[in-house]
Write a protein that binds this DNA or RNA. Structure first.
Length: 433
RNA sequence: GGCCCUAUCGUCUAACGGUUAGGACGCCGGCUUUUCAAGCCGUUAAUCCGGGUUCGAUUCCCGGUAGGGUCACCA
């Protein structure tokens, strides 16, 4: 097989969305699997809606996702007029197209229409098998706004040819565009690329995922605290899977496994709950240092690395992790609470609580600073708690240290807060009783 | 409406004629746990319907039904 060349051609008329990412991802996985190149180009023939900021948004999103690509030479269609000028007049000269009145509003303007041979077009789709359309219903469709301003279908065909694209992998919503592009390509005498139309990503109501369904842009998922590894892993498994029962993959592993013949035909519903599970799993796989770094970048403030293990088991997203720090992990700085909380929701009494707090203080005072690790503290305190009743002993200790009804376990708390400050907090709690 | 496509638990999916139809997410329950979370174990739940073909259909064919996509001087 000749070297594989694919392309990801977004039109910069909006933020990069989930569906676009999946298309880029499948194109990338296919090229990576086969050792090819994926070009990025901007289809901005619609001058009205195309905006530079959206180009930047797409570039930023791809960089954040770490999807590799090769920027095409002269990537904007709006700046490739010279290229298109080689072909449009030829199409007219050869009798495959003709200039026509634009319409009553613009009597002076001429558009270029394709002279439809009105025949059936069949193509072998790598996902769907043989697909046939009768192009008669298309009529003599418009392929250019003017002699040097091509419209989408023409520009796509010319660009794909010029870039040597071998495989066109795109969303199923483009399948009915394929026959007219083949018609144009045949008129131009180009080689037909292979096609693969991948299933759409659906909203819970099973219609094409769009803005009205909520978050759809990469930016939004980034802001929600999802990490690229998880997003890519999840998206890859929407409409494709390698067959086994493994679900967690790195981008390289996905590329190794990816083949078009395992791509599904039916659309797949995007379920954020499952994405959150992937995110939690990929977050757990990060080293504590890397986790702290990313969370720091997300939250815009430094994160105490000692909290990371606790965060990993509590948060599915960076956003949840940041909220956990704000809402539950304030104990590193200070604590304040209603003294009633020390009594285990009324199950204990002030006498019992202060008795245990006092005993605990004595035990703790005898532990050297270097013995203040969660494991060693548990070894020392557990026998006492176990003999006296775990709840009545450990609950007031935990509240004294965290000030919260819900928190990490008291041994972890002790280790995190340190001997000196822990003893101060226990003493302060005893006074409140 | 025309054309095209699709159809396994609620969702993502495995099975490429022979399985008690498997896994995952979620849900529910249990264990563990001073609390929360995590973890572990378990339960619930599916081949759209009807015809064929076949010794045998989730799987192949046809027809229904349902859903989706697309019908621009947008891409």
């Amino acid at each position: 097989m000749a070297k594989v060349i694919t392309r990801f051609p977004p039109s910069p008329t909006g933020h990069l969305h989930i569906g676009g990412v999946r298309t880029a991802l499948f194109n990338y996985l296919f090229t990576a699997h086969n050792g090819g190149t994926m070009y990025l180009r901007f289809e901005d023939t619609d001058r009205e809606r195309s905006k530079p900021e959206f180009e930047q948004d797409i570039l930023d999103a791809l960089a954040w996702l770490k999807i590799p690509y090769t920027l095409a030479d002269n990537p904007r269609q709006s700046e490739r007029t010279a290229v298109y000028q080689k072909y449009i007049p030829k199409l007219i000269t050869d009798g495959h197209a003709y200039e026509a009145e634009a319409g009553k509003e613009n009597p002076d303007k001429k558009v270029v229409r394709f002279k439809n041979p009105n025949k059936k077009i069949s193509f072998q789709d790598n996902v769907r098998g043989e697909v046939t359309f009768d192009t008669t219903e298309l009529g003599d469709f418009v392929i250019a706004r003017s002699i040097d301003e091509p419209l989408y279908h023409l520009a796509v065909v010319i660009d794909d040819h010029e870039m040597g694209v071998t495989h066109v992998i795109r969303g199923e919503d483009h399948i009915s565009n394929t026959p007219r592009q083949i018609l144009i390509l045949e008129a131009l005498g180009f080689v037909r690329p292979e096609y693969a139309h991948i299933p759409l990503i659906l909203a819970p109501d099973r219609t094409k995922l769009s803005k009205r369904h909520g978050a759809v842009s990469v930016n939004e998922y980034k802001a929600l605290g999802f990490i690229p590894e998880a997003l890519l892993n999840y998206l890859a498994l929407l409409g494709w899977n390698p067959g086994g029962e493994q679900e967690l993959f790195t981008l390289d592993e996905l590329a190794k496994e990816f083949t078009l013949d395992r791509v599904h035909k039916a659309g797949a519903v995007f379920a954020i709950e499952k994405l959150k599970w992937f995110n939690r799993e990929h977050l757990k796989k990060l080293s504590d240092t890397e986790y702290a770094k990313r969370l720091g970048e997300f939250a815009g403030k430094a994160v105490d690395g000692r909290l990371v293990p606790l965060l990993k088991e509590r948060a599915a997203t960076l956003q949840e992790a940041a909220q956990t720090i704000d809402n539950e992990f304030g104990f590193l700085d200070e604590v304040s609470y209603d003294p009633e909380l020390l009594l285990q929701n009324g199950k204990s009494t002030a006498e019992v609580a202060s008795l245990h707090l006092k005993a605990l203080t004595e035990l703790l005072e005898n532990i050297p600073d270097e013995g203040f690790t969660a494991a060693q503290l548990k070894d020392i305190l557990w026998p006492y708690a176990d003999s006296q009743g775990r709840g009545p002993v450990l609950w007031p200790l935990r509240v004294a240290l965290s000030g919260k009804e819900r928190s990490p376990d008291p041994f972890t708390l002790l280790a995190l807060i340190g001997k000196q400050r822990s003893l101060e907090r226990i003493a302060s709690a005893a006074e409140k009783l």
